[in-house]
Every structure is written in structure tokens, then in C-alpha cells.
Design a protein around this nucleic acid. Structure first.
Lengths: 161, 161
DNA sequence: GCGAATGACTTGACGGTTCAAGTAAAGAGG
DNA sequence: CCTCTTTACTTGAACCGTCAAGTCATTCGC
């Protein structure tokens, strides 16, 4: 919009950018594909179920779960409604504060996570960890943290697996 | 699905994975937000326009453009229809092969890219390159390439910016 | 303690993506 | 050449996510 000549990316930067966008586009697609194929759920649905499975009581408030899964409350609400229809989650209003809704993982939902998690972790390991040396993993972690910190300096870490 | 005890991620691996998913979720969202705010288009629409703007003749076959933007032909077809309605792209059947459709960037479309690119590049620079040292950029590039190569060993590089 | 403001969702409509089916041109086989 | 297959899309329906509005608790100011 301004008419100052912008600083374009040089050849090295372009190569870096393409490597990064390649991962940005294909890694989520690959993870979604594995979960869809083996468990019939999306990566986001898996994150919701996994998030609940990791808390004591297998229960979280919708807003806590939304933070964990990095989603809008609206998206989570629609998704939990679908998961509820499948019998994997149920909802009840929080006795401690009637404004809040608790999402609770059912036994069937727990079984679904137990059946799904190993395959998903194996895929993450295969696609992300196996191709990298320990040093590269450390470097990737540090670079990721810096980028993430620049985008949202405040935010806590998103959770997964 | 198998009942072999899976190898879970250790603490370091989890930290790496969270750093990566943080970027995976937030960087595309941040780029989309900037483009939506400043130009009223999605990152994907920008990629389509940018892809056309970089070819001699500002023209590509739909399938070439789909490869470039890493999209299904169906997604591209719907998107180009919208871009056509905005007057940024037009389509005509390829005289050399009647099965193929050529997508052509109009002058208005070119102006749109020229107006949009600097701001977008600046955002990429701010979010990805400025937070990293040159060494980290190299490391990130190498890690990205390895992951990408594991997911699709064959594929050419996706293009952007 | 009563009304207003805030917080925590839920809902419905809309827009974009995918998936399955359709169309039309080019090439292959007999 | 005339069918059959393949290639390169296009289309419409279904599904998911977002955005704007609504609902219902709680809490804050007076």
C-alpha cells in the first residue's frame, strides 16, 4: 500500500520460505489424512478428545478446552456437539459457575482415544522425528518458539498428542 | 490399532512438537489475517494471483496452477471462478489442447498483486525472518526439507511470494 | 438488592472445501 | 474411423468453520 520499494526475499530466503510453506501445507494434511483413514476423525477432533483424556477427571470447561486446542469457542461448540452425537463426549453445566459448560470424555470416548493415539503418535514420529537428528530437533524447536513468540508474545503453548 | 506398546514422545520431543504445532496453527492464521485485513483476500487466493503474476504471459493451465498452489483442481476451479467474478482472472480453453483451461491474470489482477505483495512480504519477513538468525534460517530450511521430503518424496517445491 | 455490564457459551446463516459425479476433448486399439 | 479409455477440468451437495446475534449466569456499582 505504501510506495516505498519493499525488500523482497533473496534466493536463500525464498528457499527457506518454500521449505517452511511446504511443511505448513503438507504436514497438517498428512496428519489429517492418517487420522481420517485410521480413525474417521479430523486432527482437530482428535485434539479435543486427547485434551480431555489427559486431564484428571477427563473433564474441562469449554473455554479451557478451546485454549488447549487453539480454537474459537464457536468452533469448539460445533465440534463438541458432533462428538456428543457420536457418544464420545457429554456436556453439563458447571455446578460451580452456571455460565460455564463442562465437556466430559465418556468411556466410549476414552476407548476411542486409546485406540487412536498410538497410530497418530507413530505418524508424528515417522514424519517429524525420524527424518531429523537430535540437533535438528533442538534447532527446529528453538526456531518454532521464536516465530511463535513473535506472532503471539503472550500465549501459552498449544497442546497436542 | 495394534497392541504393541507404542513409543510415546519424551519430554523434549513433546516440547519440539508443541513448538512446531504452534507454528503450524498460528502462522497460516496470521498470514491469512494480514491479507484479509489489508487486501480482502485469503492467503490461498493470493497464492493463485501471485502464481500467475510470476509466469511469462501471466498465464497458466489450471492443473499447473493447482500444482503450484498445492491445491485440488476442484478447489482451484471454485476459487478461480470467484477471482473471475472480481475481474482479476479470466479463463479460456487452451487452443493447443481443448481439454485444458488457461487461467490468465487480467490487468486489474496484476494491479491487485502489485498492491498486495509488498505488505505480504513484509509480514513474512517480520514473522519468520526477523526473529531468526541466518544460521537458524538455514537450520529451519534443512529441517523443513527433510520433513517435506518424508511426506512426499517426489513432489516439487511449492511456490509462494 | 437491583439494574447494567460482563462472561461463557450456543445458535443460525453464510462462505469455502471436499467429495462424488458429470462433461468434453484427446489419444489408443482394433 | 469408431469405440474405449484417459485426461482435464466443472459442478452441486454436504460438511465444516467463522461471524454476528442471541441466551442465560454472575458480578459490579450504586
Amino acid at each position: 500500500m505504501s510506495d516505498v520499494e519493499p525488500r523482497w526475499l533473496d534466493a536463500e530466503e525464498q528457499a527457506t520460505w518454500m521449505a517452511l510453506t511446504g511443511v505448513l501445507v503438507r504436514l497438517p494434511a498428512a496428519l489429517d489424512a492418517q487420522l481420517q483413514r485410521d480413525a474417521g476423525i479430523s486432527h482437530f477432533e482428535y485434539q479435543v478428545l486427547a485434551g480431555l483424556s489427559m486431564t484428571p477427571g477427563r473433564t474441562l470447561r469449554m473455554s479451557e478446552l478451546a485454549d488447549f486446542a487453539v480454537a474459537s469457542l464457536s468452533r469448539l461448540s460445533h465440534t463438541v456437539k458432533r462428538l456428543e452425537k457420536q457418544g464420545w463426549v457429554r456436556r453439563r453445566s458447571d455446578p460451580a459457575d452456571g455460565r460455564c459448560t463442562l465437556a466430559i470424555l465418556t468411556d466410549t470416548g476414552w476407548d476411542k482415544v486409546v485406540a487412536t493415539a498410538p497410530g497418530h503418535v507413530a505418524e508424528v514420529r515417522r514424519l517429524v522425528f525420524e527424518p531429523l537428528t537430535k540437533a535438528q530437533q533442538r534447532q527446529l524447536r528453538e526456531a518454532g518458539r521464536r516465530i511463535h513468540h513473535t506472532i503471539s508474545p503472550d500465549a501459552a503453548w498449544p497442546g497436542d498428542v
